[in-house]
Amino acid sequence: MAEATLSGSASAAKAATRQAVQNINAPLWRNAVFVAPYLFLFVTLLVVPLFWSIWLSLHKADAFGIGRFVGVDNYFRLFRDKIFIQSVGNTFYFVFLTVPALALIGLMLALALNRKTRSAAALRAVYFSSSVLSVTIVTLIWRIVFIGNFGLPATIYGWFGATAPAFLSDPKLTMIGIAIATVWWCIGLPMMLFLSALQQVPQEIYEAAALDNASRWRTLWHITLPSIRRTFVLVIIIEIVLQFQLFGQARLMTQGGPNNVSKPIVLYIYEAAFTKWDLGLGAAASEILFILIMLAAMAQYFISRRRGEEG
């Protein structure tokens, strides 16, 4: 009788232990309370506006409300608009000017400042400090720099008796001037990302390379760059997404001129929706911008991934 009682107690204990293990591994729905605030903000500020913009782009809408359903007519109007096509080309040109420059200059600065010295720390702070400025301050600084007769280029060219290029009025140089200001403003983020990646590379690898008498170039090419390959891809994708959204610099430095040569897609959206009050057309243009950003980022990701697999 005692043995049966002990056996029953042991079985009950095992069952209780099994139930406790199952309870530990089972999902606790009350944990959703911790992610609910983020999910609420994500859905409210991103998901709902995305689908609302798609719905809006299919209607004739203005500031007073949504009118009749027009289907894809707003999109056809965009592709018949030469200014919109020009703004798309301007945006791609700007991304081509800024993204490689930000990645390469950021990498070079990170390699030069990846040292545990006070001077390196001070220079890192100096280069990153421009990133905390507002777009208004940045454009004001560079409008002063690019003043035709008194700016920095005019002063330097004047030393040699030459005429400085008009970065803000020459149609061929306007986007280059905006790109220079943008690179100066945004260089802090890629530099810090590369610095973080460089500091994660094991020092033992560099010590082994030093024992093999590897030159600095071979160490950079065969150790450092392969080790931070994923960070390089991340920087490229982040900068593509950011620079496709060019607005403040073009708006404050050139107003999209001269002759719309510096008007990006976001400025076109702003003028269509809030100057002409054609919200349907502005929403359609914003969807085109979303698709372009997504395609560009995915293309860069898959190309880099394929190269990494082949390497």
Rank of each mutant, 00 (worst) to 15 (best):
V48W: 11
L220W: 11
P49W: 09
M175Y: 00
T98E: 06
L56H: 06
K276Q: 14
T182P: 00
F69M: 09
N31C: 08
L50S: 12
L113H: 02
I291R: 02
I66R: 12
L113S: 03
Y157D: 01
L113N: 04
A121G: 07
R18C: 00
A125L: 13
W277N: 14
S7W: 10
A210K: 14
L267D: 00
Y75D: 05
E310Y: 11
Q19G: 09
Q200D: 15
T231L: 09
L104Q: 02
F150K: 04
G311E: 13
F64T: 15
A63F: 13
W221V: 11
M191T: 14
A297G: 05
S304F: 03
A121I: 08
K263W: 04
G257S: 05
T231R: 06
G151K: 01
G151M: 01
I144T: 13
A120H: 04
I156T: 05
F146S: 02
L58K: 04
L123D: 05
N25M: 13
Q243D: 15
L211Y: 02
I147Q: 14
N260M: 11
K82D: 12
R229A: 12
Q249I: 06
G106F: 00
R218S: 14
I176H: 10
I156G: 03
L133D: 02
P165R: 09
R124M: 10
A296E: 02
V145K: 02
W217G: 05
V21R: 13
D278W: 06
L104N: 02
Q255R: 12
Q243E: 12
